[in-house]
Design a protein around this nucleic acid. Structure first.
Length: 493
RNA sequence: GCGGCCGUAGUAUAGCCUGGUAGUACGCUGGCCUUCCAAGCCCGUUACCCGGGUUCAAAUCCCGGCGGCCGCACCA
């Protein structure tokens, strides 16, 4: 499905761009013991990520009047006892004594003996069944060691006594834990969104594909606390009434307005529809091709252990459908477990009524979103002999290149002056060296939407050429107009 | 974690089988030239994933580790 004037590039092209132009690259790469699943953002990547986050704040946090927090990455063991991660964010595995192969205990038993044991069962139950049914390694017929739990959380030791704690596997736990204080001190009123951007950590067995499956990754999470009795009572639903959302239900795509989705019962209530609606409007502004996106309703077996209704926002990429956002209706799972464990009160007043809020979660993968923006924006324009990153101007790592047509005759000095005038307000890149066409190509590749070129005419009348990345067309503007032109065309929508 | 394939400058690769001076392209630095789209010329720069073994000699052969891609499984 080629876009106008260019073909869509694959994963390898995005990877090559990322390495060559400073978007992202492997962490600790000069050392042989560098582990997979850890990546650095380079200068271009940092710039895009910062702008992506700013867009997220504008379109979700500020739009909906959410509160944003920034919690600790290391959290106490009690948090994860209450959240269920210590018990459930783990797979039971058994290892063959002879050949060393590891298996998921529940799956192996189900296949070998046709007995279903839930993965959260006691480890002894697995051992007992393996022994009773004499289950042996499928590869070498060897005997198994005792079952153990492989927990995907990174454990850390605090202080000289090595008290156990964990790197958070999702950012939202601090939001739940902080909820009582935030609601009280920030004069909260249901429904209330609390948002957080930050790093999460998961000890993935097999991290892969650069930013797509990481052990250390960025999440932008939103937990909306609500009164479960009022899920259709939401005034601001009218803002998204006519917004089209693309729903994938039971193997079928249904594109419909939020209003229609609620009326036909495809979505359970206005509350869920509203948040899927504003999430759609946010992603439209990232430049991701929404025609290649969908909200997929998850079946019972796919849902996370805490979710009662779940939609994944997925996009089609070169490597297949990719999950960018998990939207889970977590009911009162989190607040009631933290209430029980901590003895803290989590009920709040809503219209004179005491309620334990329910939670709807919008859990966004930032790294995956950045990758998708790059992949969906990158084009190979054969006719112009260029690779161009047609990223939205407000997300571009470089807003504008500032170039001298040639270095001599005082053009270099004049160019430096122009650069000095704008570099605080924009991400500007100054370049004097090499052929002008080559410099334009470099800027195209890094996604700079504009290039300003100082030529001989500039010395006479103080005008410069302004080149548009996508059309390659140029116009002459006054130096004194540069700021207003850039300001208008790189502004967030 | 398992199976298959693979690892050489910033990037893409040749060389590996058959051990003996590591080559090419693009890029990048500087210079000449140049009045707007990867022009040309000159100069320069940068690499054998890590460790061990065999050998007079290892990018090359052997072993281990780490990493990458694909599949299985798992997930934001």
């Amino acid at each position: 499905m080629p876009l106008d004037g260019g073909s869509i590039l694959n994963y390898d092209s995005v990877m090559q761009l990322a390495l060559e132009r400073g978007f992202y690259f492997p962490s600790c790469e000069i050392y042989a013991d560098a582990q997979a699943g850890f990546w650095e953002y380079g200068p271009s990547g940092v710039s895009v990520k910062a702008k992506f986050i700013e867009l997220w704040r504008r379109e979700l946090v500020r739009r909906d009047g959410m509160l944003e927090v920034d919690g600790a990455q290391i959290m106490s063991q009690s948090v994860f006892e209450a959240s269920g991660h210590l018990a459930s964010f783990a797979d039971p595995v058994i290892k063959c004594r002879q050949c060393g192969s590891n298996y998921r205990a529940d799956r192996l038993i189900s296949e070998a003996a046709k007995i279903e044991i839930p993965e959260s069962a006691d480890l002894g139950d697995f051992d007992k069944t393996v022994l009773e049914k004499n289950i042996r390694c499928p590869k070498c017929k060897g005997e198994f060691d005792k079952a153990r739990k492989f927990n995907m959380m990174f454990k850390v030791e605090i202080g000289p006594e090595a008290e156990p704690a964990y790197l958070r596997p999702e950012t939202c736990q601090s939001i739940f834990v902080d909820f009582p204080r935030l609601f009280k001190t920030m004069r909260g009123k249901l429904p209330l969104g609390i948002a957080q951007i930050g790093k999460s950590f998961r000890n993935e067995i097999s991290p892969r594909q650069s930013l797509l499956r990481l052990r250390e990754f960025y999440q932008a999470e939103i937990e909306v606390f609500c009164n479960a009795a009022k899920l259709d009572d939401l005034d601001r639903f009218s803002e998204v009434r006519d917004t089209t959302i693309r729903l994938w239900i039971n193997g079928e795509l249904k594109a419909m307005s939020c209003q229609a989705a609620v009326e036909t019962g495809v979505l359970p209530n206005r509350f869920v529809a509203y948040y899927l609606g504003i999430l759609t409007e946010f992603y439209e502004k990232t430049g991701i091709d929404m025609a290649r996106s969908r909200f997929r309703r998850l079946g019972e077996k796919e849902k996370a252990f805490y979710a009662s209704i779940a939609f994944d926002f997925e996009v089609q990429t070169a490597i297949g459908w990719l999950e960018l956002v998990a939207c889970n209706y977590r009911s009162d799972y989190d607040l009631s477990s933290h209430a029980a464990k901590s003895k803290e009160k989590f009920e709040v007043l809503d219209d004179e009524q005491k309620v334990l809020p329910h939670v709807f979660e919008i859990s966004m993968g930032i790294d995956r979103s950045i990758y998708t923006i790059l992949e969906h924006s990158l084009r190979d324009e054969k006719e112009n002999e260029r690779i161009v990153l047609s990223i939205k101007p407000y997300l571009a790592p470089v807003h504008v290149g500032v170039l001298s047509l040639v270095k001599k005759d005082g053009l270099k000095e004049k160019t430096d002056e122009v650069y000095l005038k704008i570099k605080r307000r924009y991400d500007a890149f100054l370049d004097h060296s090499g052929a002008i066409g080559r410099r334009y190509r470099r800027l195209d590749e890094v996604g700079a939407p504009f290039a300003i070129t100082v030529d001989h005419q500039t010395l006479e009348d103080n005008t410069v050429t302004l080149r548009q990345r996508d059309s390659m067309q140029q116009e002459r503007i006054k130096i004194s107009d540069i700021d207003s032109v850039l300001s208008a065309s790189t502004a967030f929508p």
